[in-house]
């Protein structure tokens, strides 16, 4: 005969099993796919976190080495000194411009976190051949671009410990909580403004910026 204690345990076990069947919240409920191995995860896990550099790999790079890699891999688009060729992004300059009529957001003037620069070069650059640079070369490029922006001295060595400590100029000027809605209006229906006050402030007529919307694709460049 079962003791009442044993019956109780059996009941609990079958209840637990029933719950597992009823709820999709139990990990492995469907059982599809394969559990990712540590080696697989290591191969895919490329991200480095901007704020504290978590995920930055071993390795290091100097400003001098970065200058060489930059000349070879980056200068054609970003300019010899980060000034940007054509419409490719400027990497340097714009410090103090963020309140101007024409602000220039760059690594030096805008980017809040140095490890983000390592992460972005590593994940997306150089544009025609991304993911082809070694971790050391990415560190070196990061060091060089930071030095172009006077954020680190020429003897700076970028690695997983030094990058999170670089104080970026715009670090404290981001608000990471969305303040919207920031416009409030009651939807007025009649005589909302005086007809005499309705005035056109700007028009796209005659601006010559709009590509054509019929026929073949336009190749226009502004005058």
């Amino acid at each position: 005969m079962f003791s009442s204690r044993k019956i109780g345990l059996l009941l609990a076990a079958s209840l637990a099993a029933a719950c597992a069947r009823a709820s999709a919240a139990e990990p492995g409920h469907f059982g599809y796919g394969s559990v990712a191995t540590p080696a697989q995860i290591a191969g895919w896990d490329i991200d480095a976190r901007g704020e504290d550099g978590t995920g930055l790999p071993p390795g290091k790079g100097t400003v001098d080495r970065g200058a060489d890699v930059y000349a070879e891999q980056c200068a054609a688009c970003h300019g010899t000194f980060g000034e940007g060729e054509s419409r490719f992004p400027k990497l340097v300059g714009g410090v103090g411009s963020l309140r101007d009529e024409r602000p220039e957001p760059t690594v030096g003037s805008y980017w809040p976190f140095a490890p983000t620069l390592w992460d972005y070069i590593n994940r997306a650059m150089p544009m025609p051949a991304p993911h082809t640079l070694s971790a050391d070369d990415v560190y070196a490029l990061t060091a060089y671009i930071l030095s172009l922006n006077d954020l680190v001295p020429n003897e700076f060595v970028a690695d997983r410990n030094s990058l999170p400590k670089v104080k970026m100029r715009n670090r404290d000027n981001f608000i990471w909580t969305d303040p919207r809605p920031d416009t409030a209006a009651a939807p007025c229906m009649n005589a909302c403004v005086s007809a005499a006050d309705v005035r056109i402030a700007s028009t796209a007529e005659g601006r010559d910026l709009t590509p054509r919307t019929t026929g073949p694709l336009d190749t226009m460049q502004p005058k």
């Binding site: 309140r99 690594v107 980017w111 976190f113 983000t116 992460d119 000027n173 990471w176 969305d178 303040p179």
Partner: peptide
């Protein structure tokens, strides 16, 4: 914590007249 990737710091943030940015 969030990652603060390039696409949520350098780009896709909204620069305000006082020089602060909304992320």
């Amino acid at each position: 914590k969030p990652w603060h990737t390039r696409e949520e710091t350098s780009k896709y943030t909204d620069l305000m007249p006082d020089g602060t940015s909304r992320g």
